[in-house]
Each structure stands twice: as structure tokens, then as C-alpha cells.
Design a binder for these strands. Sequence first.
RNA 1: GCGGGCGUGGUGGAACCGGUAGACACGCCGGCCUUAGGAGCCGGUGGGCGAAAGCCCUUGGGGGUUCAAGUCCCUCCGCCCGCACCA
Length: 829
Amino acid sequence: MSERRYRPDEIEPRWQALWESERTWEVQNDQGVDAAPQRGRADGGPPRSYVLEMLPYPSGEPHIGHLKCYSIGDAIAHFHRRLGERVLHPMGYDAFGLPAENHAIRTGVHPRESTAESIAAFQRQFRSWGISIDWSRELATDEPSYYRWTQWIFLQLLRAGLAYRREAAVKWCPHDQTVLANEQVDAEGRCERCGALVEVRQLEQWFLRITDYAERLLGDLDSIAWPEHVKTMQRNWIGRSEGAEVNFRCEELGVDYPVFTTRPDTLFGATFFVMAPEHPDVLRLAAGTEHERTVHDYVNHALTESNQERGNAERPKTGVPLGRTVVNPVNGEAIPMFVADYVLMEYGTGAIMAVPAHDERDYEFAIEYGLPIRRVVDGGEGLPYTGDGTIVDSHPKFDGMPNREALGAIVDWLQSEGKGHASVNYRLRDWLISRQRYWGCPIPVVYCDGCGLVPVPEEDLPVRLPDIDDYQPKGRSPLAAAEDWVDTRCPECGGRARRETDTMDTFVDSSWYFLRYCDATNERAAWDRAALREWMPVDQYIGGVEHAILHLMYARFLTKALKDLDLLDFDEPFRALFTVGMVTKDGAKMSKSRGNVVSPASIVERVGADTARCYVLFFGPPDQDADWSDEGMEGVHRFLGRLWRLAAETADAGDGARAVPELPVNAAGADLELLRKTHWAIEKVSSDLRRFAFNTAIAAVMELLNDCYRLREDVEPATQAYAVANAASLLFPFAPFVGADAFELLTGARVWEQPWPVADESLLEHEEYELVCQVNGRVRDRVMAPSDAGEAELVALCMAAPNVVSHVDGRDVVRQVVVPGRLVNVVVR
RNA sequence: GCGGGCGUGGUGGAACCGGUAGACACGCCGGCCUUAGGAGCCGGUGGGCGAAAGCCCUUGGGGGUUCAAGUCCCUCCGCCCGCACCA
């Protein structure tokens, strides 16, 4: 036998070069304008599918997490291609963003350069990994040819009133010197990027009206095939609450203050009223009262506190009286007003009715300040009581009713009296997209002294990001320093105007890139609608669970907004989602500071890309976190070597006439056994691929290969060639280089041009099987049983099994449970 | 506190619908081949008792449903994730 060695360093570059020169993975859009074929249409050619992994943020070199994500996506893409579908599998880069700018601040290197360098590294490695990308559609969000259309989308939103500008209390990161979206502030009130404690500032900012879509963002979750935990996270984030809005009137000022409550059934128990320190009327209310000074001080103190301090539910409740009262509309009672920082301006109306008997926070406050507590729901012992019960001491109309029932009745009554109405509240806030940073997409508006805010005309797009020298954050956008750029003409009156100097949150860029891939080179429009009809929505989206809220919510929102603007034809961008688990090392997240980073490039250099790809798919279910181990990887490497060598040996031993092997007929003995194993593996890998069980799919190919080795002395050469070629074919989606090379050695053919193998039903069946014989549920013996045996025959076989006989041993047989194809359980007493 | 998930050999994991627990791989042990091997091939490997046949135990703990439970139900323990002063 010749000494053949598996040499990934020779095999892999050869196939890379072929796929690159032949542009193997490119797909064309249909050109016919009228055709605008619907996806999957019977007469529209092969079915299509759109397989997409989240685009990477190019910073430095790709890491193992990228390798895992793109190995998953690539396996799915290959599988669908070989099932006969036309697969769109593109790639791009989320190239704007803070890290590149911070790097520029440190080194002076322009973000465009460092980003381009990183993109080049990603391109190199994606090719070396053999990811089957349609490179003709490649994009980067920092290219004017891309962000031109990001700006165009902004203008459409602006015109529709979905983008707006207002002054607001916003989250400000003192380190990065920029405002942040709510979503970019973590639970401790820290900037998600740099970890600095976030402050609150009043600033004029751009917002997108995502709250208009809260109900649809929530409801449409039911229509998409996403992991339940991601849907749950989005539901929590949207935070829908049903209740009522009720007006409390301050007679002294003649102003109505609406409050939102989820418990209108407890309205009669309201004994005081609380406003948030940020409420615009707080100072006005206190003015002229003896409390003016203390309110002023309290509000000032509250506003300077960090979110972290404010957000701590554990600390004692504080607040001060406003010296005013409001009237409870249900009973005409005047109750005192307070300002307290446990009431949030961002939620509801910034004011609450306080029902200390039935709310823990109000209770705590009432105890602290000696306020009356009035029970109106009879139920469990002790106060506060937040459970259900019977309404008491409220109003003859409602007393005695179960509180859930009273809730609706009270809302109806309020509504008929004009004192309130049913209402729904959301936790979701409008999306703040202004960033006082340089490396982002310029917001395409100008400010004219005469005309005010003027959108840049679409024909003048893109508003190009100018080059600057000084990236140092100064509390306003570094762009403000580019005077030549800021000074411009008003598109309406031609007079002097100044450009908007804030840039957009990078999440805007990544909220529509999947649309651009469908028509990536279109210079006249962001997309041709027919191109979107061909590919969208994405059939399978793949990416890290860390984007469960931010990116995935924004992309859904923008898709719905664009549909409402009649710019596309679907409501949801991603039909199915798969979330990729993290790769750790020694149980911890890989990081430079820990020194536990596994570099894909060095792994590929050492053992080849196939081993690296197969291993990240083999070492556990892909949606779970998994720990990297070099030893585990060696096992996969050995397996690939075994496959390749057996393919080479089998080819060498043949007569040189290579062809895709046909299924050998009339096989028996070892030949039949190996053919059965082959078809078992075909079935197993196919079904495992459909459920993203790559680890068990690869294990099935290992089993097949183990049998090829075990039986190789006993089978015909044709049988062996058939089995090994199928092993290579099944492995191709996970290890494309070895898969293609081994298959070619045996057959002379290109494996990716072969249809995915189909298991032969007759080979999946056996004429007999091992029947498990149980006595009282415990396995006592195993006997061979004919596959077509009836229940009576199976019982007889089982009862005759030696070890069953000894366990039954004259005891009474109560019953026999037969599971054909599996077991017989004899129940004795 | 609310919501979601998880707990299986020395290790990563498998068992998809309640039906042979531990596939596959790592590690370890043994054999073969070789001048040599950190190469390759073959075999063994949950724990206990036993010469063997076989028996007993075993999926975080306890209880239950069932002919049959890793899987379903209850309960407790531990871990992970998301949300959280959200009215």
C-alpha cells in the first residue's frame, strides 16, 4: 500500500484557487423585470434560499467565534445548494463604529485605514476557511456607495415622521463623549462599550419612532421561527402592560395629571400621588409653597445621581412633598403630591397614583413618611398585598366583586365618566440614533438660519464623511471641527447653512444590509424591489445571542417601517434564526488580557481549515457555549486524515477509471452491511443537518468511516469506493476541502455539483433486529427477531429467551407489553 | 422578585415521540506494525460483586405517574442567561 499522507496545506489552497477563479458561489438575480418571480414558484426555476450570518465588525483579526458562526452558516448553505436550491450566501462588514475611532485617537491612524486593514484580514481568512461566499455582493457599511443609501433611508423616515428631533434627557457616556441608546447601557448603568458610568444630559437628539411599532414588534414574534429565549427577551424588552390612564386634577393649578396604572381596581386605595424628579411641572407645582426650596434641592440631587444609584430598588425610598394636592377622580378625595425618585419619567406619564396597601414601593414610601394605608382588596394576610381578592371599602358598585372583574368594570365606569380610559403602556423607548462621533454615517440634514432644518436632497447624496485630523472627543462631534464641510448652502434658499455634525448609531447601518445584498451593486437605488422579492426574507439567519435585542429588534423595526412606506413587501426580515453559542477557553471568555485567545489563523496553519471548522461543529451543540480543547481537535484531525487516506488508497487500488459510483446491486454479507451503514449515515446526516445537529452528523460520518476500515478486507472494491465516496460527500458541508478532494480522488467529479445523496429505503430496513427482552421493565436478554414478526411471535421469542425464562421462573405473567421493532416487556408477579 | 434555560462516565457530549443510558470523540489501558515514533492499524474502557454465567447500583437530591422515566408531574439543591423601583 502506498504511503499517502493527508496534506491540508496542499489540498486547501488548490480548492480555494479553483473556487475563486471560477466564482463558484456566485448567484445571479433574474434579469426579467416583469418576471419578478416569487420565491419558490413552481415555474420560477429552482427554489431559492437566503442563508445569512450576521456581518462581522472588522476589528483586528477574526476570532474563533467568527469561525464557528460562519462554519455553521456555510454548512447550511452547502446543504441547501446540494438539495437543488439557488442559495444566496453573501458577506459584508459592519465597518463604522467606535473601536476604530478609539484606535485612531490612540494612534492617529485614520479609521478608514485600520478598518480596511482588518477587512483585508477577514477576507483572507474567510477564503482560507473555504467559506462559500458570493463575493460579487460584498459590501462595507463605511463605503459611500453603501451609506449613501443609509442616508436615503433616513430621509424616507424623516419625511414619514418616523425620524424626529427633540430635546431629551439622554444617556451620556463621559468617557466616549457621546450619547447612547437605552439598549447600549447595561444593568449597572455602564456604557456597553467602555464600561464608564453613564450620566444623564438634556440634549437635542435624533430619534427613530420605534415605539409606534411596539405592538407589531410584539405580535409578529408569533409568526417567526426564532428560538423561544430570544422571543422572550424581545417581549420583555418591549414590556407591554395593560391598564388604564386616569386623570388626577390639581385644582390649585387647574391642571390634569394623567397616570398610568395596571391596577385600576385599587384606585380607591390611592392615598397619595408621586411625580418623577424630571417631570417638567414639579418646580412649578412647588413654587410659592413652603416646600419650594426642599423640592428644588431634591430634584437637583436626583438629577445628578447616576442611573446605577437611582436604579437600585434596595435602597430606602426618598422624596419630598410638593405642598399641593390632586383629586382622586373615583372618590373626589384630595390626596397629597410628592416628588420621589422611585418614579421614572421614562415610563408611563412620569407620575403615579400611590396605593400603599397593594404596591410594595408605595407601601415602603408610605411607612417612611407616615402616610395613610388603605386596603381595598381583601385577600392574603398582611400588607402590602399584591395578589388577587375581593374589592372592599371602595364603592357600593364594586365592593364584593373579585378584583380582576372589578378592574374592567372600573375602567368602563371611568371611561363613561370621562375620567380615564383603558390604556396600554410599553417599556420600549424611541431609538436614539445621534452619536457625537466621527466614524459613522453622517446624518443628511442641514440647518439654515432662514429655512430651519432642511433635509439634503436625495440627488445630493451621499453626504460624504470628510477627512479630519483630530478625533479627540470634545463633547460635540469631531465633525464640527471640519469647518469647510460644516459650512454649506441651504438646498432650499441657497443661503448659508450648517451641516448636522452628529453621525448615526452604527446599528442603523446594520439594520438594512441584508436588503442591500439582494441588489448590492445598484447605483440608482438602494434596491430594486424585484430583487428583494427574489430573495427576502432571509430564510436562515445565524449569529450570536448577544444581538437578541439590539440588532434584531432594530432590523425588524426598520423592515416594518420600510414596508409601511411601500418600499418593500414583507414584514419580517428573518424567517428563522439560529443563535450561536460562545467558544470559551479554560471555561472563560477568550480575551487578550487573560491570554487565552485561540487564533484561527494559527490553527489553520497547523492543522488546516477543515479540522478547525469540523472541530468547532463537533465539540458540542452549536447553540451552546463550548470550551476549546486542542486535544479534542486532534481527534477530528485524525478522522479527516483517515478519510482522506482511505479515499486515496481506494482510488489507487482501483483500475484508474474514475466515476461517481453507482449503488452496487445484489450485495450480501459484509458488502450489504457496509451499504446499509452508508445509507444509515446518509439518512442521519440529512436529518441532523435539518436540525442543526452538526456534532451528531459528523459523528455519523465517523461511524461510517470506522466501518469502512473495519470491513475493508471483506468488501468488494466497488462497495468500498461507494461507501468512502459517500462519506466524503456527506462530510463536504463541514469540511469542504477534504470532502471535495477525497471525492475527486475517487470519482473525478466535483462534489458540490453532485446532488445531496438520498437514502435508499430498502437499505434502511433490516430483515431482523435485536429484540430487547424485559422482565418487569429490566433488560434481561436480547434475541434476534424477524422485522416482519407479529406481536404474538415477538412475545414467543421473548418468553423463550434463556434469561427471560430464568427470571419468569414459574411466576404469574400479568401482561406482556410489545413495542414492535424494539422490545417486549413481560410483567410478572 | 419576574421570565427563560441547564444539571448524564475521568472529559466534551449522545439518547429527536416515555422503550437497550453513555453513540461519536478526548483521555487512559493493552496488542500489532515499525530501525524509530508524539505516525498508522486492531481491541478494551461508567461503578461494585463474581472464575464465569450473571447480579446489583448509576443521568444533581427526594417523591410521584407508568408495564417502562435521563425524558412527564411535584418538590428541594446548584449553575447560567435575560428583565427588574416599569406603577
